[in-house]
Design a protein around this nucleic acid. Structure first.
Lengths: 327, 327
DNA sequence: TTGTACGCGTTATCAC
DNA sequence: GTGATAACGCGTACAA
């Protein structure tokens, strides 16, 4: 791994001149430049990003913190982000938190230490103190998938998504409903609002289950036992697919006995039987916009208010919510 | 982002002393140490990894180059690798090549420039010149999933996997066979060997199709039309699932009309209908071993011959190859 | 046009 | 025990 200094002594000029030649800088005698360039090529010179970072105070690194890279949704998002980042000369440091808040904290520490130019993250929590922590990190950040209010965010409205699902369920004539997901998920709020607008008696016909552990299994079992015409909304496709399998075990058929909808619209929903109704997030666009916005913050003038970029959620109806399964 | 020098002036000692105090180094007067530590804590000091890297010639960075992070197999592998790496204080720079050789080259350049301590990669090709390039990169590398002979590798034998599939198909009484995959895939060689041992007339009853484009669609269509009792072996689960969908469109039933096996044993195979027979690679173990071996190379004495760590492939029989679909 | 010299934030090797 | 001081590889103001 040859350095500028070595090239300098090899070509008999100063390291400064090598630097200038290599960077195509203004004034350096053509013959010298050629000699330097040739020498560099010959020895396969590669600039040392570490050294450049130290002096330039710029790493061209983006920290990417996702909840679970094993979830195809996040994997596809990471793919989109990596693609966009590379277009702009940035590289990705990947962290998968496994929804573990402590690990996430550690990851952020590490990211700070590496002085990544920016941070893209999928928040595990919307708590104010989490937001504050991000702000305190002073490093340019963009939240993806969740609207973090005081932070730059790229997302689809989970509330609207929930409402879409509610309308969809109601349009199909369902009469009791179960939401499976986290406690502070806007999808539930929107779902509830939609059901309420549709005249559903929330107290009587709406149920909630945490996605943790297998509480939801009991909830599902009870629901299908007691409630014909029930509909289940799972907070993501992975969860929905688990529900689908549970329903198969219970020998209730989807969508005849119970309807099911997921969220994310990953390709998983296309390969199950029945196929899975899900709310699509425009993954590639989210990745692109997140990187765009982040780079803008990094390279741009500076502060300005947080930009919250809201994209359209789109319900994709498939076999799990149709009267007639058409595969 | 406070620096050692700043802490030094704040506490009225030299930067060198701050360094010693912060690193818990031997000799520094307790009271001084306390003052420094307090000051550091108060200002939330974070060591600058970039500076440390420059002087220490060690980045604690591992470059991870996978073929497609959107493929759940690689995503899960990345997850395992990240987990193991963090245990050893290393962080991951992620690159997804999309099976694009040119992009892979670029990624490797970038990795060199960042001076990552090591490299873990899933090779797109086994060509000798690829190997040579890796060796030339002088950076400690480990190949995962593919045995690269002259390079440290962690893998399951694709040939043995192919043979297992062949035996499995033969045991179920199949009589004609199609392999879908790349041209230099050991899975095909093993598959062929297994079929041959089983007395199959390769010329007559064996077919090959590239996985590129949709050539394979024609191959599949022709096969099921002309050959009752056919069996298809796809080079990975993603491909197998595409085949499964194509078969549904063709209205041939699996496994009654045609058997199907994949490779990787991702969770995808559990959610399709029928479920998918696949050859399991021990993902977590592969990730663990790859990181272990890499760190060993990085921190270890030095060279030594390449260690090729061969793990057991295990065929997991599911619905797509059973006479009786048991879901 | 080119070289010298300095600084980026550390670690490490010296003297004191 | 502590403070100068020299690296590490590079960019760059300044002087020549």
């Amino acid at each position: 791994m040859i350095t500028m200094t070595e090239i300098a002594s090899l070509t008999g000029v100063s390291q400064a001149t090598v630097s200038r030649a290599l960077n195509g800088s203004a004034s350096v005698r053509p013959e010298i430049a050629k000699k330097v360039l040739d020498c560099a090529r010959e020895h396969n010179y590669q600039p040392n990003f570490i050294a450049q970072s130290l002096v330039g105070n710029k790493t061209y690194l983006i920290g990417l913190v996702v909840s679970d890279i094993g979830n195809p949704f996040f994997a596809e998002l990471a793919k989109a982000i990596e693609r966009e980042a590379r277009k702009r000369k940035y590289s990705i440091m990947l962290f998968s938190t496994d929804y573990n808040v402590a690990k996430e904290e550690e990851d952020l520490e590490i990211i700070r230490r590496y002085k990544t130019d920016g941070l893209i993250f999928t928040p595990a929590s919307k708590d104010d103190d989490v937001v504050d922590k991000r702000l305190k990190y002073e490093i340019p950040s963009v939240s993806v998938t969740i609207d973090m209010r005081r932070l730059d965010s790229v997302f689809v409205s989970h509330a609207e998504a929930g409402e879409q699902v509610a309308r969809h369920f109601l349009g199909l004539g369902h009469e009791s409903f179960l939401f499976i997901g986290g406690k502070d998920d806007d999808k539930e709020l929107g779902f509830l609002a939609g059901l309420d607008k549709g005249g559903v008696d929330i107290e009587r016909d709406y149920f909630y289950s945490s996605e943790k552990g297998s509480h939801w299994r009991n909830a599902v079992a009870e629901l299908v036992k007691a409630r014909p015409g029930a509909a289940i909304f799972a907070h993501n496709d992975l969860q929905a697919i688990q529900v689908l399998e549970a329903l198969k075990e219970l020998e209730v058929s989807v969508p005849q006995d119970v309807a099911l909808a997921g969220f994310d619209n990953t390709f998983l929903g296309k390969i199950t039987t029945p196929t899975l109704t899900s709310v699509a997030q425009p993954i590639d666009e989210m990745g692109r916009l997140a990187v765009e916005r982040l780079v803008e913050k990094i390279e741009g003038s500076g502060e300005g208010p947080a930009i919250r970029c809201k994209l359209e959620a789109r319900l994709v109806a498939r076999g799990s919510t149709l009267q007639m399964a058409r595969i």
